[in-house]
Design a protein around this nucleic acid. Structure first.
Lengths: 172, 172
DNA sequence: TTGACAAACAGGATTCAATACTATATAGTA
DNA sequence: TACTATATAGTATTGAATCCTGTTTGTCAA
């Protein structure tokens, strides 16, 4: 466990370094709000929406506006720090995992789960398509019912963080 | 051309037959609005949103409400006549093509293009995934820039139909 | 063909995501 | 430390989607 924690800490440091570097290169200021939003993305396994992040981050910045979350998520997307997940017409959801990977979406609880598939990397895309279009991303997309929903458990998401750095009046 | 038109007409008849049958089986009444919405879906190549269909159909039913379009699209989806396309957080878009197929989405004009890939049907999905989840759909998803946008042409969508069956006051 | 009834319709109200706008606050730097 | 361009919070606005209600209409049985 010691070793695992060490690796995770190093990984987090590496990602934060990438974050700060990329912001710098793109003339985005490093603000506490931005760092916190990015950290929330890293620690989320569920491909959160802007509203999800807003809800969580309110424990830390009680007065942060949803607008700030939205603006920054779009800014992060623009500079390639995060991706927008292909959902199905509900709120935009974001993905901080930049490694080539694929998605399974549960039709019941709407959770999106990353998975990897080596076979897929070698799949042949028809010549006509490659010639006709410029393809920037290819993904496998699975839909169905996840393990939790199959077994009747509801999915309540990850625990929220209770640290509070806010300075203003309390919110319920 | 004669032969091609004949085949297309037969195809349309077949689809309308399927539509009426499926509605019947699921206790959905066959109304002129529903038939028109379904016909618009069949004749669309662009995976329209409810608003797209509403705009087009207003030429035929000037007083039809967006609510009617939305309700019926969701009803068609529920009984398996159409699918919701995996988009990226904007308005829901619908797909009347029930054959196994895949999507390419243009990041510029947002057009979604169907394509087929035989190789993909044989792709191996990891055992753990199949055991853990119930998979109901698997699709390949490509993103990039389409031929039109590459060449600098904007995409204006298909021509609208000018037949007007409306009985009420004129709209602009 | 007609009449009764459940379902569908149009239209308005409401909710929620997302964007636009603006005055104030702050990160980065000279 | 002070300046300036950018970010933030907060409010307004837009648009999709859902909810609700009174009226209309398709369907089925007489």
């Amino acid at each position: 466990m010691q070793v695992k924690n060490y690796i995770e800490r190093k990984n987090l440091e590496k990602k934060l370094h990438l974050f700060k570097n990329t912001c710098h290169k793109n003339h985005l200021k490093i603000t506490p709000q931005r760092v916190t939003i990015y950290k929330k993305l890293i620690s989320s396994q569920e491909h959160p929406s802007a509203t999800d992040i807003h809800r969580k981050i309110k424990n830390i910045f009680p007065d942060i506006s949803l607008n700030t979350i939205n603006t920054n998520l779009l800014a992060f997307n623009k500079i390639g720090l995060i991706n927008v997940v292909e959902g199905s017409g509900d709120a935009k959801r974001f993905d901080v995992n930049l490694d080539p990977h694929h998605h399974f979406r549960c039709l019941d609880c709407n959770k999106i789960i990353d998975f990897y598939n080596k076979d897929f990397e070698n799949i042949k895309i028809a010549e006509e398509l490659i010639e006709e279009f410029t393809i920037t991303d290819k993904k496998l997309h699975l839909e169905g019912i996840c393990d939790r929903c199959k077994s009747g458990y509801a999915w309540f998401g990850e625990d929220v963080d209770n640290v509070n750095y806010g300075r203003s009046k309390k919110r319920r």
